[in-house]
């Protein structure tokens, strides 16, 4: 099956900033958090979004779910255009494409027991005529939690257990695509492995597709078929995960990969150090937006906006791609 499940074209999302004074002073009153993003996600595959905080990863994921209005562009999900749909029309879509939010414990209501948390999706989607206690038992078994966890509250769960409950909520209504925002952030390495194994299992068993946001590159390599690197709201490089890890073409991707701390005290690092100052979205640099931090930047980079090019199986925006 290599059918496109999700096709996003030239997506733009912006936020209003500043008030009347900014407008009167002629300052920018809008920032484009997602700026012309295009990608496709195939059925049964996993796509990872990586990039620094503030690069627009979470905004992009929220927009797909209709939690953030689209300014321009299209989102085709299972052949249906999502842009402009009302909240009511989005409801069945969200059932097919649930979102797992960051912070395993914080994303669960502290006042609800695990039983209520797992019944809630059925109630919200008008399926409370189902045998809810059987559904709760089924979901707990699917994510590998003992049956008696149904009576616990979020504060009685460890981070890993809370994350499993989050996964159970996401898969409750047999979705096709799970959008997971930092599914393993804050978890210990051994627990992180358990959660990733669980997600991989569910994907194989239920034929799920996944869109994963993470800044842990080691996780990306273990779980994603394809990946995209975001910088200032744009995809600077996207392609097959293994190929990108083997030979990144965009200098920013190369810097990210080289900055990955590795557990070997004797390793000689050939780090690409970037100046730490990320430009503001209010004052995007001219030309290639990465040129202010790019070690390879040349005069042309400050002037010409690079058009997307294909290098191997990757697509990127760079005048002077690496490893070609």
């Amino acid at each position: 099956m290599s059918e496109d499940l999700l096709r996003v074209s030239d997506l733009r999302v912006s936020f209003r900033v500043g008030g009347l004074s900014a407008r009167l002073a002629g300052r920018a009153t809008e920032i484009e958090a997602v700026s012309g993003v295009s990608f496709t996600l195939q059925r049964g595959s996993t796509f990872a979004l990586v990039g620094e905080s503030g690069s627009g990863k979470t905004t992009l994921a929220r927009t797909l779910n209709g939690l953030q209005p689209v300014r321009a562009g299209t989102i085709l999900f299972e052949g249906q255009e999502l842009q402009g749909l009302s909240n009511a029309a989005l409801k069945p879509v969200r059932r097919r494409m649930p979102m797992m939010f960051q912070d395993p414990v914080g994303s669960l209501s502290p006042r609800l027991s695990v039983r209520s948390l797992l019944s809630e999706p059925f109630v919200i989607h008008g399926l409370s005529d189902r045998d809810l206690s059987a559904e709760v038992t089924r979901l707990l078994a699917l994510v590998g939690l003992p049956r008696d966890f149904a009576d616990r509250y979020p504060h009685q769960l460890s981070g890993g257990q809370a994350r499993r409950v989050g996964v159970a909520r996401a898969i409750a209504l047999d979705p096709v695509l799970v959008v997971a925002d930092e599914p393993t952030a804050g978890l210990d390495v051994s627990v992180q492995g358990e959660v990733l194994n669980l997600l991989n299992d569910l994907r194989d068993r239920m034929g799920l597709s996944m869109l994963i946001i993470t800044h842990n590159l080691h996780v990306v390599r273990q779980i994603a078929d394809r990946m995209a690197v975001m910088y200032l709201g744009r995809f600077v490089e996207q392609g097959e995960t293994e190929a990108i890890f083997r030979a990144p073409h965009h200098p920013y991707t190369a810097a990210l990969l080289s900055a990955n701390p590795e557990p070997d005290p004797d390793r000689v690092h050939q780090r690409i150090t970037l100046p730490a100052d990320v430009p503001s979205l209010l004052a995007r640099p001219s030309g290639c937006e990465f040129h202010t931090r790019c070690p390879q930047a040349q005069r042309r980079c400050a002037v010409d906006v690079p058009a997307p090019v294909a290098v191997g199986n990757s697509r990127l925006t760079c005048h002077f791609p690496l490893n070609t």
């Binding site: 905080s53 990210l256 990955n260």
Partner: peptide, 8 residues
Amino acid sequence: LDATLEVA
């Protein structure tokens, strides 16, 4: 922090 900032 992110990987690049972490290293820095």
